[in-house]
């Protein structure tokens, strides 16, 4: 956050450049069988980017490389003036707390209350003893309540997370990600375990709450209709490579054919 540094658009109020640049990213879980093949992608620091593609095509691996839940085999991931691919230990944790994540299976700590699940979004910032004794700062607690209100769960703050429905759990997951005050939100199939109506509500919520904070979102999603409806940009992947990249209106059946293969399902 050097004020004298040249300010490149797009930037947020604090002057932080939130552009993510992925260069030649390769990941092979087994040597010689890359899941991601030399993927390069530049994501501007605002709006929602949807990554679509069939299962097993490397979408999830790509998104998990960005916050290093998966270690890339080769390539660079440039964000906030650092190469995430090279970070380790403390530096990696400090980078991770700038990146919120929403999961398909919500990944809440089920035996903790809703509010405490939201507060775990601060674990990268607060000292361990504070988390252990539940002595979170008043500012964080107030913010957690505000976020729960923002995702429509203000009344359920003290309920245990395992008492919530799927849609409610995902709302908690979104609040937890926002609790990090992130510069980027990754969402890995956030609606795949939800019914169609709830899926739309969750996507609306992510788009709205991230949009009003100007946080860029990268979302993996296999529902093409949802991607078209909410994303500003669609990236189509097939067999570990990017085969389409453009605004949703440019996405045609021929592209879907190329991304997913087959034909019968398009009719």
């Amino acid at each position: 956050m050097d004020a004298s540094a040249p300010i490149k658009p797009p930037v947020d109020d604090a002057g932080v450049d939130r552009t993510l640049i992925i260069r030649s990213l390769t990941k092979a879980y087994r040597a010689g069988q890359p899941v991601l093949k030399n993927v390069s992608l530049k994501v501007e620091g605002r709006g929602m980017t949807a990554i679509i593609g069939p299962s097993g095509t490397g979408k999830s691996t790509l998104i998990r490389c960005i916050n290093r839940l998966v270690d890339p085999t080769a390539g660079e991931i440039l964000f906030l003036d650092q190469d995430i691919a090279k970070l380790n230990g403390r530096a990696l944790r400090q980078m991770r707390r700038r990146i919120g994540m929403v999961f398909q299976e919500y990944n809440l700590v089920e035996r903790l209350s809703v509010i405490e699940n939201v507060l775990t979004g601060r674990l990268g910032y607060v000292p361990v003893w504070r988390a252990w004794l539940r002595r979170f700062k008043a500012r964080d607690i107030e913010r957690a309540f505000q976020l729960l209100d923002a995702v429509g769960l203000g009344a359920l703050a003290t309920q245990r997370a395992d008492q919530l429905s799927g849609g409610q759990r995902q709302r908690v997951g979104i609040a937890r990600a926002l609790m990090q005050e992130p510069d980027l939100i990754l969402a890995d199939e956030p609606t795949s375990s939800l019914d169609p109506k709830t899926s739309v509500e969750i996507m609306e919520l992510i788009a709205k709450r991230a949009g009003e904070r100007d946080i860029p979102v990268i979302v993996n999603i296999h529902n093409v209709a949802l991607a078209r409806r909410f994303a500003d940009r669609v990236v189509g992947m097939s067999k570990g490579e990017i085969v389409f990249d453009g605004p949703p209106r440019d996405l045609e059946d021929s592209h879907l054919l190329q991304i997913y293969g087959g034909e019968g399902w398009l009719e």
């Binding site: 916050n67 839940l69 944790r93 400090q94 980078m95 991770r96 707390r97 700038r98 990146i99 919120g100 994540m101 999961f103 990944n107 809440l108 700590v109 903790l112 405490e116 775990t120 979004g121 601060r122 674990l123 990268g124 910032y125 361990v128 988390a131 252990w132 997951g173 937890r176 990090q180």
Partner: peptide, 16 residues
Amino acid sequence: EALKAAGAPPLAVLIK
């Protein structure tokens, strides 16, 4: 995994 992704240090992951 979720706590690690939030940047929680190992001890915090253990406790929470």
